[in-house]
Design a protein around this nucleic acid. Sequence first.
DNA 1: ACTATATCAATACTATTTCTTGACCTAGTT
DNA 2: AACTAGGTCAAGAAATAGTATTGATATAGT
Lengths: 202, 202
Amino acid sequence: MKEDKIIHKQIEPLLAYFQNLIPLNKEEKQLVCDLFKPRLYRKRQYVLQEGDVCNQFNFIVRGCLRMYKVDDKGNTHIVQFASENWWLSNIGSFHERKPSELNIDALEDTMVLQISHDNLLTLYIQAPKFDRIFRVLIENSFISLQKRLLQNISSSAEERYLSFIESYSHLTNRIPQTQIASFLGITPEFLSRLRNKQTKKS
Amino acid sequence: MKEDKIIHKQIEPLLAYFQNLIPLNKEEKQLVCDLFKPRLYRKRQYVLQEGDVCNQFNFIVRGCLRMYKVDDKGNTHIVQFASENWWLSNIGSFHERKPSELNIDALEDTMVLQISHDNLLTLYIQAPKFDRIFRVLIENSFISLQKRLLQNISSSAEERYLSFIESYSHLTNRIPQTQIASFLGITPEFLSRLRNKQTKKS
DNA sequence: ACTATATCAATACTATTTCTTGACCTAGTT
DNA sequence: AACTAGGTCAAGAAATAGTATTGATATAGT
């Protein structure tokens, strides 16, 4: 049957990503194509809103998302940015099926491939290889989260900024500095001063 | 019990709206509070996308939505605008549980109170007074739709524009003229010329 | 006193969105 | 044949929204 072979083009970056971790056979590829759905979010659009349960696991094909918390005073604190070939979801809310206290929205028009909670379970059952793939993927997230935490509790704003532009060089010119400030936990004004200082140095 | 009295503040405009049609008792108010959920849509965000079933009946607390169709050529035709204290839903899709061929999105950041299809049925059963309220509300929508249709088939673009600014004076300076043009069924350029002509008159 | 940071207000700058205009086209009247 | 009600396309102008910088002043901890 021909149907077997219908693999939608938009899925390719994701297949390439998996392929890079562990080779997939035809059936596994087909599963991925069936269970992940492409979706476009426009700049500023919510992907996940506080209070809703996170029901999708998102792989970013192009664009950029942020996950953040709004505190009681109305200040936003960015937990994570994610751009091409990264994953973003509120893992806690996703797995425990509980309302999210974090928001996710788009900093640019963003194309994601998303798999629902149910479909992810199906995927694990039908192709246990994905248990491993998703373990690796979560491990990676965990590692970078831990790194970020460590940085946060041990460094000055300036050090954190320097480290940010090193780790996220592809994002520094792409997202507004207000956002970077909110990620670093400082005010935009202070970030502006840090930058000023840096440019004077060179 | 205290719980009885917990009425979320955001619901008030809706209670006021109902109250204005028919007085509600405590239990009815409580039902409204339990069954309607507040939700914020940001500018350009979809409230309903073509192909999805419309599952929410929306009351607008603040902001402005539009409902429109995109034709085969990619042109958009606005069926309806809705701002504060108006209702907007694709009633056909909502009641017949069929995929919508219309889109709804936000022209401004918009706060709505929404009730799901299931919850609306519950509401009707638990408080039959709402049968009447919603009948009135649908009648109002019907009347303004008919008026619009009549206008459309019987008037020139200029007359339609004049009538628009009369009926929707609160919106004329609030939404872009591209949108008004699309509502009137003319090009933005032509609308611009009509406006030009008007100002010259006075 | 000094450093790292915050707040507030004003200003400057940039990018995006919206509006207008000119030039030209078309189909249906008069 | 000329007129009217509209349309298309491209360019530019104007308005608005979003972003970045700067100065002045404040605070808490070393």
